Amino acid sequence: MPDWTSTLLSVRELAPSAWEGNTVSVAGFDGTRATVSWGVDRAYVAPVKGNDTLKKDMWSGRSSCLEQRLRQVAAEMPSVGRTDVLGALAAAHDQFGSQDGRRRIVVATDGLVNTGCADLRGAGFDGAAEIKAMVQRCSESGELPDLSGTEVNLVGIGRTAGGTAPSSPQTAWLTTLWASICEAAGASSCEVTAGARVRPAEKTPQAAKPEPEVVFPAVAERRSGRNTTISLPGSVLFATDRAELSRSAHSALDDVARRITDLDPISVTISGHTDSRGSEESGRQLSLARAKSVRSALSERGITVKSVRGYSDDRPSCTPEYHDGRPDHAAMACNRRVEIAVTVRG
């Protein structure tokens, strides 16, 4: 599971020696701006005077104190059963008050919001249009925090504690989402990274209110008579509008190849599909290129593919893609897929 304390302490310029003459606040957060709990509230870090040995000893003591407080905060049980990163950012900005000088917010989070304008429970994790719509929705709803003049670091994006891990393209999408939200909020700089330190999982008391789960699109399989169709979401295999397989795609295709071999097929065909955005021709070309990429990968794994086809949006898996004129990005992501049809002997 993620070790948020070690992750925070590894961020650049977070050593206590860099804080002298500044004030520091530390908090855990969960579901709302109001429930942010300040375990350290505007603590002034006095400059250390004396020789190098004295300074080193003082900095070491402060570092140990900070780590202890961070671990205490990280161990606190959430007060509500949801997560709102925007609320945490807003509360952190409130903490600055009217003070002048350099302002910096560092948040350790997987980025998986499950409430408010940035709720990701229905997200497709695929496509710039979905990100643009979410940023606009947060801006229009008034939930976008004012981060003017503030440096922002978000670390650990996509690093979940158990459950299904995102693919590389999905993590890239999630990282881009938070960078876009940060920029729209007016931050002076935004650094969003997916890396997080980890530690062995341990038994902890269950929260009184379990959180609604954010689910990443994953490989699905359905059977009908002699035919088995394996569906792979575009976000598992490809970056947005690209036909080159991502690094994480190869792991998924290893599993798919083993499954096809177990089925002992007499025929394997591949079809690519897109959503309704863009022209029919461009959608067909992209989906065909993606189907060919999957065919090449399966051929390298010893699977013979009889044929490949590229479709536009004429064979949707999820409908409708629009509700009252507003796009349903989860449905669109569902329709951006590659299907592998496997026929077995009767």
Rank of each mutant, 00 (worst) to 15 (best):
D3E: 01
T7S: 05
S10G: 10
S10H: 14
L14Q: 14
A15N: 14
P16C: 02
A18Y: 02
T23C: 05
V26L: 12
V26H: 01
D30S: 15
A34R: 14
V36F: 03
G39L: 10
D41C: 02
A43F: 11
Y44H: 11
V48A: 11
K49M: 14
K55W: 07
K55N: 09
G61E: 13
R62T: 00
C65A: 14
E67S: 13
E67M: 01
Q72E: 15
Q72P: 01
E76S: 11
E76Q: 12
E76V: 06
V80S: 10
T83M: 13
V85W: 02
G87K: 05
G87F: 03
A90V: 07
A90R: 10
A91S: 15
A92F: 04
F96C: 02
G97N: 12
R104W: 03
I105G: 06
V106R: 07
D110C: 04
D110Y: 01
T115M: 10
T115W: 12
G116H: 06
A118K: 01
R121V: 09
G122L: 06
A123C: 09
G124Q: 09
F125N: 04
D126N: 12
G127R: 05
G127D: 02
M134H: 13
M134L: 14
C138A: 12
G142H: 07
D146L: 10
D146S: 15
E151Q: 11
E151L: 07
V152N: 06
N153L: 07
V155F: 14
G158S: 03
R159S: 11
T160S: 03
G162I: 00
P166L: 02
S168D: 13
W173S: 10
L174M: 01
L174T: 00
A179Y: 08
S180G: 04
S180Q: 06
I181E: 14
E183K: 13
A185S: 15
A185Q: 10
A187F: 14
V192Q: 00
V198R: 08
V198E: 09
P200I: 08
P200L: 05
P205G: 08
A208S: 13
K209Q: 13
E211W: 15
V215F: 05
V215R: 10
V215A: 11
V215T: 15
R223Q: 11
G225T: 09
N227R: 15
T228L: 04
T229R: 12
V236N: 08
L237G: 04
A239Q: 15
T240Q: 06
R242F: 06
R247D: 12
H250Y: 11
H250M: 12
A252P: 11
L253F: 04
I260E: 03
T261S: 12
L263F: 04
P265V: 02
I270P: 01
I270V: 09
S271Y: 05
G272N: 07
D275E: 01
R277H: 04
S279W: 09
G283P: 05
Q285I: 12
L286G: 02
S287L: 03
S287I: 06
S287M: 03
A291C: 12
S296D: 14
A297M: 13
A297W: 12
S299T: 14
G302D: 00
G302E: 03
G310A: 10
Y311Q: 12
D313M: 07
D314H: 05
R315E: 05
C318P: 04
P320H: 06
H323F: 07
G325A: 07
G325K: 04
D328L: 00
C334W: 01
N335V: 00
R336S: 13
R337W: 02
E339G: 07
I340Q: 05
R345S: 15
G346Q: 07
